[in-house]
Design a protein around this nucleic acid. Sequence first.
DNA 1: CCTACCGATCGGTAGG
DNA 2: CCTACCGATCGGTAGG
Lengths: 196, 196
Amino acid sequence: MAKIKSSKNATKKETIVEKASKLFFEKGFSASSMRDLAERVGVEAASLYNHIRSKEELLQEICFKAAQHYTENIDAIEKEDTPFIQKIEKILRFHIDQMINNYEVVQVVDRDWKHLSEPHLTNYHNERRAYRKRITAIVEEGIRRKEVKDIDAPTAVLIMLHAVSGIESWHRSVQKISAKDLEENILLILLKGLGK
Amino acid sequence: MAKIKSSKNATKKETIVEKASKLFFEKGFSASSMRDLAERVGVEAASLYNHIRSKEELLQEICFKAAQHYTENIDAIEKEDTPFIQKIEKILRFHIDQMINNYEVVQVVDRDWKHLSEPHLTNYHNERRAYRKRITAIVEEGIRRKEVKDIDAPTAVLIMLHAVSGIESWHRSVQKISAKDLEENILLILLKGLGK
DNA sequence: CCTACCGATCGGTAGG
DNA sequence: CCTACCGATCGGTAGG
């Protein structure tokens, strides 16, 4: 409930992780240097290591915090007693919201999670697979109840999750469309299709 | 027409670019070293520079060759005298095919084009925008002719292009679904929607 | 195509 | 939090 948004009462480590998210988003994890990061934080590179153990720890923080956020959301949706097509809609709305309001983190996680080292790499990979499986189960139940078209559920999940990631480009564009309109358009396309 | 597919009569430079595509796909452009690449090609790192000018030239080759391929396809589709909803379907089929049969290149281009230096970065960015605009124009004409739902066309294009990129995960998965079934499922979802 | 090597930069540590 | 510095690795060149 207590959402801290880059405010002054954030830990120094939190500040570092936040600056790292933006840096990694802009340059990618591998092309980002600790000296780059230190400059943005406003200290010397060596000083960062009083708050973090390594560059990779930053990536771990980013990836697993995001994963936890995703898990909490799917927990809540699974518990709800609503039609399955509505659960799918809520999952989509959550991902759209994340991509609009937390896109640096989302993009870094999607693009750079492969740079995690073991055992974190395997752990993260498993979390990712588990998350997709839970969404797949919801889609499959939706199909069984005739609320969803008879499609291959894992394929549908891949499309749902990746279609939404396209909004990243929206941030850089002229943004002639509002965030709300964007959300409704995406839902319309994915739920009802492009064709008339 | 003459498609050479990693055959023996490829130039040494072509071999290097091909190996680079796979390496960049696996590790990302920035995390790939020329010594990595040299080992895969079977020579010393210094020897690569008899065939290429720099590491970045490899990325340029990959990005602009792909861009040319995309442009040729949209050229052909624009010329066709078919319903616009069919043009959209053909665009989708082209991208699905690329993602299934040429996924290393597609992924490298999408993930690492930002590491191009000027003036290539701007050139590539412009080509990308122009390509999307041409697809957007097709979607808009489809809407005008009532073949396509009345949606925000740029948003639809973002979704189309990114939804397809989700298939990359399909490669890593168990592949219980065939390429043909995958293609038909994607088209069904994007053209007709998830809902029943 | 190789050996030998360059300057630059990297992530990270020691010690205060 | 800083100065000073480490070994490793990077992209790339010289010269044959």
